[in-house]
Nucleic acid binder design. Sequence first.
DNA 1: CAGTGGTCTAGACCACCGA
DNA 2: CGGTGGTCTAGACCACTGG
Lengths: 231, 231
Amino acid sequence: MENIPVNSSEYIYRCLKEEILHLKLKPGQSISENELCKRFSVSRTPIRSVMQRLSGEGLMNIVPYKGSFVALLNFNDIEQIIYMRIAVESAVLRDFIPLCTPLLEEKLRYIIRKQMVLMEEKDLDMSRFYELDSQFHEVWFKTAGHNMLWELIQKSEVDYTRFRMLDIVAVQNLPAIIEEHKELFQLIHERRPEGVQPLIEKHLNGGIHRLQTRIHTELRDYFQPESGTDE
Amino acid sequence: MENIPVNSSEYIYRCLKEEILHLKLKPGQSISENELCKRFSVSRTPIRSVMQRLSGEGLMNIVPYKGSFVALLNFNDIEQIIYMRIAVESAVLRDFIPLCTPLLEEKLRYIIRKQMVLMEEKDLDMSRFYELDSQFHEVWFKTAGHNMLWELIQKSEVDYTRFRMLDIVAVQNLPAIIEEHKELFQLIHERRPEGVQPLIEKHLNGGIHRLQTRIHTELRDYFQPESGTDE
DNA sequence: CAGTGGTCTAGACCACCGA
DNA sequence: CGGTGGTCTAGACCACTGG
């Protein structure tokens, strides 16, 4: 049981979405509608509306007559999202370089510094770090007039968001991420669009490299089984 | 009033979606929930579920306390989708070229020929032409293992789908589209990945060039007013 | 069989809009 | 004021699952 603010649906939606994206609800975990009805003290209608929404976004799998489950991560999907991001973001960053003003450079520098400060803290808030990481990338999308693309990519990235979260909380290799951001910054600072593609590629593929071995061991329960391996 | 098959929701959803995408329901047109209740003889619950779904996909705008409307097209969004597609599809097509077998070449040739045949028909079915156009592009996505990306792009393309439909039904410049497909085919056939980028760019921007002038005249009611023009 | 989700009805109350 | 959507309850019946 929890307290029930007005507009239950919206609250419940945010609540569950946050728990899923921050991996508080584990991929694969089962969640029953009736349980949720009790937990939030509401009837099935708002719960179902939330579940439909989450399942529409790919965060939840509703299996008829069996149950509802937090969606597993699909490694292939994640690879493809990264492929797409590399293509799009390289183009955007190349567009951004000639548009980058000293003020924007300072903004980027500022984000990097905040991440460095955050990293030093004990009881480090990983969500906050993730947030800053997003902000960094957001700068060039918005500056180059691709605001809508950034939002679209964010929405399509549901799996990838949890993957990045996993990268951050499980690997905790924050210095590597910051280092890559610095390299990107250097490129922008020196106005060298030719160097964009390989660096973006390296940066966006970073999570895969860092997590690769563990996906098949400790973290395997979070991922969809590869089709045709065993059985 | 219409006949009411089982599983009203799904039927109603398909029905409305088709009518919107094929421009039978005009962008901007108002649609009331209660009207739909009568038309399909169901209560508000299934209607609302359908409306939510459509609005979630960006096909519908639900304006609280005023009404529901078929979403207007947003020219800027369409440009950005095209920008993204150019980046992604160029990469995919470059990957595809070395993977293209003679069998696949025949498949592409076959699609082009079908389009040419279709074009000669009187009472030409534009939806069918659109369908073939999609199939052509789909080939390289699927072959290069980017099946999921293709579906993702299709889903993100709701506005763009109607834009392409507009291009096909309003401009009817089918020879231009076919000609571009032939050029792309030639590139593939000769295994010339360097030529991909500009050609993809030309092809995907084609619709904009063809429609450009009319967007501000006959078709202006279908588009969101540019912010800050008049008023 | 009990439990799950799938679907729907009927009806309620609210907030806001425009005439 | 009547019409619109926003939200929710309560409860019904169904189809399928799994012990």
